[in-house]
């Protein structure tokens, strides 16, 4: 028995078939909900149109010109795009550096995030504190202060070398050697595993414990449970984190800029893509060329994200499908 049947009809109310009434209410609620959603999205839309869209389109236009920041510009067609691949060895260098940076640091970062999330999910006391502590680097990681700190830690007389000195190992200037400088940047990015960790933690909480109970009754060990329950059920979250961190990593700039003193030193080993864009734009007064490079980066990220979405069919498991 439901409420509607008990409640007396208000006088004068039109009689409608109960099913249709239900559908109408649903539609009404949906419309209301989507209106609310749009309202929440509104500030973002205003921001997009007023702040982002203009510069975005302008930079697309500029990428076909020889705009130099100050002074006039001329239309040069696809010259900038062609030059990138033919006459700019540093472009290739920057692309290689960035690829190494992204494809090493992102998987490591996600692995760390997942591992820590699983430890924290075990029910440590004081979870909010741990969560905050590990999340902190994500907030600070891209700041100038941390980059300067990093430079000190990995410098010739830095903490790392002092630590190594205890074991009688003579260190070197990690940030200033071309073989290791990019490595310190990668470590810095891995260190900011807090934000994917928090998302993983939320994801882990969503997995019903009954699955694990059932599995352990069937004799599945911890490893088996991890691969057969945790990973598949967490795969949408992993996918989400992967996409997000890939895009972030491709756009890394501040850390490399500060640690290398703004020029990708030593010997271009920390010249990330965005830094080359910046240098071309602001040091060489080739803003047109820099815009073209920025758009190539957009294409690269879009292509990679597209590939990821295609591949996700084979490994991402949505339990509600």
């Amino acid at each position: 028995m439901t409420d509607t049947q008990v409640r007396p009809r208000p006088p004068g109310a039109t009689t409608r078939p109960p099913v249709a009434d239900h559908k109408g209410a649903l539609r009404k609620r949906r419309r209301k909900e989507s209106l609310t959603a749009y309202l929440f999205l509104l500030p973002w839309f205003v921001g997009l149109i007023a702040i982002t869209a203009g510069p975005l389109l302008t930079s697309l236009y500029l990428s076909f010109t020889d705009y130099s920041l100050i002074g006039d510009s001329n239309w040069v067609g696809f010259d900038n795009y062609i030059r990138m691949f033919q006459d700019d060895p540093r472009f290739i260098k920057a692309l290689t550096n960035t690829a190494i940076y992204v494809f090493v640091s992102v998987p490591l970062q996600l692995a760390f995030a997942l591992a820590l999330a699983m430890v924290l999910d075990r029910g440590v006391s004081g979870l909010p504190i741990y969560r905050s502590v590990y999340y902190l680097p994500s907030l600070l990681g891209s700041s100038v202060a941390i980059a300067i700190l990093w430079r000190q830690i990995f410098g010739a007389d830095g903490l790392v070398n002092e630590f190594l000195g205890i074991f009688g190992i003579e260190g070197m200037g990690w940030v200033s050697h071309p073989d290791t400088a990019l490595g310190t940047l990668i470590i810095l990015n891995v260190w900011t595993f807090g934000s994917p960790m928090v998302i993983f933690l939320a994801g882990l909480r969503q997995i019903p414990t009954s699955y694990y109970e059932a599995a352990s009754l069937d004799g599945a060990g911890k490893t088996r449970q991890f691969f057969s329950i945790t990973l598949p059920l967490l795969s949408p979250i992993i996918f989400f984190n992967l996409i997000l961190q890939l895009i972030n990593a491709f756009q890394s700039f501040t850390q490399a800029f500060v640690i290398s003193g703004g020029n990708g030193s030593p010997a271009d080993s920390t010249l990330l893509y965005t830094m080359h864009v910046y240098q071309k734009g602001f040091n060489s007064f080739e803003m047109g060329y820099a815009s073209a490079m920025a758009w190539v980066l957009v294409l690269i990220i879009a292509a990679l994200t597209g590939v990821n979405f295609l591949m996700s069919k084979y490994w991402v498991f949505y339990s509600d499908k």
Binding site: G155, A156, M172, W174, V175, S176, H177, S260, S265, P266
Partner: peptide
């Protein structure tokens, strides 16, 4: 002068 990596550090 100091070794290459110390020199690079000083250079910045």
């Amino acid at each position: 002068s100091p070794d290459a990596s110390r020199s690079a550090e000083l250079g910045s």
